[in-house]
Write a protein that binds this DNA or RNA. Structure first.
Length: 400
DNA sequence: CCTCAACCTG
DNA sequence: CAGGTTGAGG
């Protein structure tokens, strides 16, 4: 119940004691208290940062989306979706669930009998993408079911002659209405356009009626259904496919609050990610890399301070106009579209001071001299603002 | 054994 | 940033 969270004495001290120093560059009285129920000043976040139209420029995501859509369209047109294999191909390296191959094998001595006839060097079967393939297959089936339903509906609820011709032309894997929508749109972008298209259809009061109103209404419904299905499919596939650039960006921002996130925490803050071993360890790895950069910078600047003849560690503060801050901000908040929380500056200052103390005391002769520092810093994680729990944060801050 | 984090490398 | 390696710890 202590209102003053007692995480070590250090963290608070960093800013509480040398008030004179802190005052220099600090703009606000530390908003990020470490208390359990600390209230984060999120709402006051940067009006300025919201003006950036390219906030988390999701061009990569869009590109990816376009690819997926192309694939899905391919599924519609080709009964033999070989295309699937090339789906993910490049960017994200697949994570072949490190098949723990128990090497105790060899109950048979000598003669290595590699049952794998495969070409040397290639990993047997698993070379295909991760789960994307399965997912696409599922989606394909779903679309197929939809097709069936549609046909059934068409047969039962419609006596118009026009409908029959449509049904007859509907060969395996060929859907007339998909052609139709392909024709009116620009080839590439489905999703974005798609939704508008649906809206258009809905509001279109009347079209030239060459078909019975029943048939026409049905077709419209069908089109709606299909576009909806495709849209969902795209989203599903996209969700994929593991971690995307916006996830990375979000993770970097989260680093301002937590240097040592637990996997549970990550799960809580990335609700749109389906965690499995690979994804989890990849994210953990991200933070590991973040820390690496962070500590390297700290050490670098600490040594600099030492060689500059600085004596009092308290003199070392990471302020928003410092070089160190620029380096860190550049790394974790490149677009500078996020306001770095003060709690991070405090932790950074403390880290810097710890490195300074260690180096100036010659502790760095010990191979594991950093360990104690890591231990200290690992206890200084702050709570992460709830907004981060939104899957769409910081994406589309202006959604509606 | 297995996991995790630091470390090193590309 | 991802891979691979290593050493500490459960």
């Amino acid at each position: 119940m202590d209102p003053n969270p007692s995480l070590l004495s250090s963290p608070s001290r960093a800013c509480a004691q040398p008030a004179e120093l802190c005052m220099e560059g600090r703009r606000n009285p530390s908003p990020c208290e470490q208390g359990r129920d600390s209230s984060f000043s999120w709402n006051q976040v940067p009006n300025s940062s919201l003006t950036d139209p390219d906030w988390f420029g999701d061009q990569q995501v869009q590109a990816k989306r376009a690819r997926v859509e192309t694939i899905i369209r391919g599924m519609c047109l080709s009964p033999n979706p070989l295309v699937l294999g090339s789906v993910r191909a490049r960017d994200s390296p697949s994570c072949p669930e490190k098949a723990r191959e128990r090497k105790r094998k060899q109950s048979l001595p000598m003669q290595q009998n590699p049952p794998k006839p495969g070409p040397a060097g290639t990993h047997g079967s698993k070379k295909g993408g991760p789960h994307v393939r399965e997912q696409l297959h599922m989606l394909k089936q779903q679309l197929r079911q939809l097709q069936e339903h549609i046909l059934q509906a068409a047969e039962s609820g419609n006596s118009a002659p026009g409908a029959h011709s449509a049904k007859q032309r509907n060969g395996y894997g060929r859907w007339p209405w998909t052609m139709d929508s392909d024709q009116q749109g620009s080839g590439g972008d489905l999703s974005g356009v798609e939704k508008h298209r649906v809206a258009e259809v809905e509001h279109q009061p009347e079209e030239p009626r060459s078909l019975s109103s029943g048939a026409r209404a049905l077709l419209e419904i069908l089109r709606k259904e299909l576009t909806g299905a495709v849209s969902q499919a795209v989203d599903a596939v996209l969700q994929k496919e593991g971690l995307n650039p916006s996830h990375l960006k979000k993770a970097k921002l989260m680093f301002f609050f937590t240097r040592y996130p637990s996997s549970n925490l990550l799960k809580a803050y990335f609700p749109d990610v389906q965690f499995n071993r690979c994804i989890t360890s990849q994210m953990i790895k991200w933070f590991s890399n973040f820390r690496e950069f962070y500590y390297i910078q700290m050490e670098k600047f600490a040594r600099q301070a030492v060689s500059d003849g600085i004596k009092n560690p308290k003199m070392l503060l990471v302020l928003r106009d410092s070089e160190l801050f620029r380096a860190l901000n550049m790394h974790y908040n490149k677009g500078n579209d996020f306001e770095v929380p003060d709690c991070f500056l405090e932790v950074a200052s403390l880290t810097l001071q710890e490195f300074f103390r260690a180096v100036s005391a010659g502790k760095d002769s010990d191979p594991s001299w950093k360990k104690p520092i890591y231990k200290i810093i690992s206890k200084l994680d702050s709570d992460i603002p709830q907004i981060f729990k939104s899957s769409s944060y910081p994406q589309e801050p202006f959604r509606n």
